[in-house]
Design a protein around this nucleic acid. Structure first.
Lengths: 193, 193
DNA sequence: TATTCCTCTTAATCTACATTAAGTTTTCCT
DNA sequence: AGGAAAACTTAATGTAGATTAAGAGGAATA
């Protein structure tokens, strides 16, 4: 039941004292999932925030043709959640599942809220990483509308060098917003040049 | 120099006492801009957070063909900023300008940070509205990859009923990610059916 | 160790939307 | 009020990437 990655991540932003750490640790839940297992399914209400400690999770939405579109990959050290469902209680539009056998920590919505009010440093941490997430989403959006598929692929390689090696190509295709067939073609005709 | 809209927006989430309000008000700056005037230009460092009190602002990125892509509209009561530039100090990729003559309040980066550390309620407010922004960006991203141009337009009308009446059509086109020509065609062939 | 199901590839065909290029109407500025 | 500049429309043509289909290599499960 290893929470060192989570504590290290928080320690980059704030310095919790012994009591605060203890309280934080007391609200953590630990879980393992096998490859392909679901943590959240579209239509259910998302009532937790998830922090990955090993393996890799992903969130994705399904369109009316049944095609999956990856919103986020979460390797160890990343948070993942359907934020609208968490904050409003509406049914989730995202699915979250495991790409490989994975381990994660979760905090329930109620505990998460109490953690933020009882430990201002945690609220500070969440405010700051929230701003980072906003920065990331803003730029993802800009990239999607200003760059070609090839440029988006190059971007992905630069941003997630570790994932590009382990991830099946079709997952990368789904993230950058093209079909697996087109990505395959793109990469193989590129080599020729 | 009216900050009532800002105070009302904050009051929806937290209850500031007299001293806290006074301190908050002391760091506010008030500005007016004419239509088409810039508040931030790509390449400059964004060092403030902006809150609109009248008129309408917008943020957009320009692609290599010179085409503008609107990321956000900010009518009265909305915050607008290039978050990556603000938090990291990198040059902005977004432009922010006024669609109509507008008035806004801004807080400098340094004041914003101090406000958050000195008034935990403000940090709470920012954490919560940050989560709302994340929820919005997550769903915008999902919409963009799962919906057709027509569905994205319908979505926009539902989400911003006030803007749809005042905004030039080409701005709407730029937001939903199509050319003005295509939006025009789409709307006029729709009427026939 | 076989078998079943992924993953990747190649190639032909298709389509939503872009581009280009006018022309028309509306709005803005002096 | 009058002229310039935006905003909107229509239509022909172009294209990035989707769809469909089918086969080949890999890897998980029994």
């Amino acid at each position: 039941m290893d929470h060192s990655l989570l504590l290290a991540g928080i320690a980059k932003y704030v310095n919790l004292d012994a009591q605060e750490q203890e309280y934080l640790i007391s609200v953590l839940h630990y879980k393992k999932v096998k490859r392909k297992q679901f943590l959240l399914e579209e239509g259910d209400v998302n009532s937790k925030v998830i922090f990955v400690t090993s393996g890799c999770l992903r969130s994705y939405a399904v369109d009316k043709n049944g095609t999956e579109h990856v919103l986020q990959f979460a390797p160890p050290g990343w948070w993942i959640t359907d934020m609208r469902s968490l904050t409003t209680g509406q049914p989730a539009r995202l699915n979250i599942d495991a790409i490989e056998d994975s381990e994660y920590i979760y905090i329930t919505k109620a505990d998460f809220e109490e953690l933020n009010t009882r430990i201002p440093k945690i609220e500070h941490y969440n405010r700051v990483i929230g701003q980072n997430a906003i920065a990331t989403y803003q730029h993802r959006q800009i990239d999607n509308v200003t760059l070609s598929a090839m440029e988006r692929y190059a971007n992905f390689c630069q941003l997630y060098p570790s994932l590009i090696k382990t991830l099946p190509q079709k997952q990368v295709a789904s993230y950058i917003g093209v079909t697996p067939e087109f990505l395959s073609k793109m990469l193989n005709t590129m080599i020729v040049k």
